[in-house]
Structure formats: structure tokens, C-alpha cells
Amino acid sequence: MKPSPLPATVAAAAATATVLNLSARAAEAADVNELIAKIKSTDDAVRGPAWQGAGPVGAPAVVPLGQVMTDADFEIARSAKRAIERIVRHAGRPGADADRKAVQTELVKLLTHAAAPVRSHAAWMLSEIGDDAAVAPLAALLADGAVKEDARCALERIPGPAATRALKQAMAGAPEAFKYALAHSLRVRGETVEGYPSQKLVPTKQTGVKAA
């Protein structure tokens, strides 16, 4: 049986939706381009309001801003970093789960960026709004010498059993020195860990002070 053709009104509505979608994407791209151009300005009177108002530009700006974080001008790089913070905190507002997930997806892409400060910042931003979808990419960074502490901290903060499992799995294969830090994160999350006591509380010298 041949499918019946779409009624003309439905086809027209679909075509309109496609046009609107394309228009929305074009507008989105224009917003991102404008934001990035302003962030790259050497004039802080242009750059400052741009990063401070970046929140609503949202997910599409995250990866381009990550790239600007490597700009040779430290004030431009700093502005890009702060713009990402604005986007993350805007996306984390109550009732905006779709925005939050979209931003999370883009932040995860930055976890593999060549520059360690970008990976580090993405990890901390995910600590604020990440969920289970961010756990595996963050866990992969536990073996990254430059940002493993940032990844551990991010996993410590993300609620849910997936992050706990990732920290436990990392304990199995981590270098001995890093296991103390992982054990700390697990304890913060309410887990019991045998051994690996807090290094801050392990005496390193003899004392004559008596315990209370």
C-alpha cells in the first residue's frame, strides 16, 4: 500500500519549520561570531560587557570560547574563560535542563583540548553542571598528569553513583601517590576506603605535645 501524500498544509508547515530552524541557527551563529569578535577586542570597554553578557548565548559559544582561552593576550584569554563561566551559570538555572545538557555536551568536547588550562577549566565547569554524561570523559582525565587533580575534584562534586564508580575504578589502577587523593574524594562522597589516610594528618616528625 502506497503511503498517502502529506496534506498540503502539513507539508507547508514542515517547510516553514525547516526555514525557521535554519534561521534560528543562522541567528545563533551570528550571536556567537559577534561574541567572539568582541571577546577578542583589546578594548576592555568592548570585551568586558561581552563576557559579562555571554550567558544567554549558550552552548554554541563554548567551544569557540575554549579556543580563545589560548589567545596570546592574557586579558582576552581571561575574558573567554569568564564568558564560559557566565554561560555555565546561566545554563544551570532552575528549569533550564535542556540548556544545561547542551552546555555540558560542549564542555565535554573541551576536555580533550590540546591546552591544559582549557581542559582544567572545562572540568571545573562540569563540576558545576555535569551529570552522568560527563563522568566517563572526566574519568579519562584521571590519567592526565596536567589536569588529573581538576578531574578528580570535578568527579567529587558531581552527584550520583556513576561518579562514585569512576573514582573507585580509578583507585584500582592509579599510581600509589594519587590513590590518597582518590580515597579522599570517595570519603567525601560517603564511601568507606581501607588505607590511604589523609596525608595531612600523618605525623611527619616526633612531637612532645600530648594529645588532649
Binding site: G55, R86, R89, H90, G92, R93, P94, R100, S127, E128, I129, E149, R152, C153, A154, E156, R157, P159, Y180, A181, H184, S185, V188, S198, Q199, K200
Partner: peptide, 30 residues
């Protein structure tokens, strides 16, 4: 960039998961 709601008895932010996460800050080891 938003109003926070606070439970003064439990000493915690309510109704805002992202804000609640900022009630603590993971600390660099050790």
C-alpha cells in the same frame, strides 16, 4: 545571577541544584 532560596535551619540552598553544588568546593590534595 539569580535570587537564592535558603533554609536557615538546615543551612542549605534549596531549589537550585547548580547553586547547591557551590555550597562546597572540592579541595586540592593534600
Amino acid at each position: 545571577g539569580r535570587k537564592l532560596h535558603w533554609d536557615p535551619v538546615k543551612r542549605e540552598i534549596v531549589g537550585d541544584e547548580a547553586a547547591r553544588r557551590l555550597m562546597s568546593r572540592p579541595q586540592r590534595y593534600p
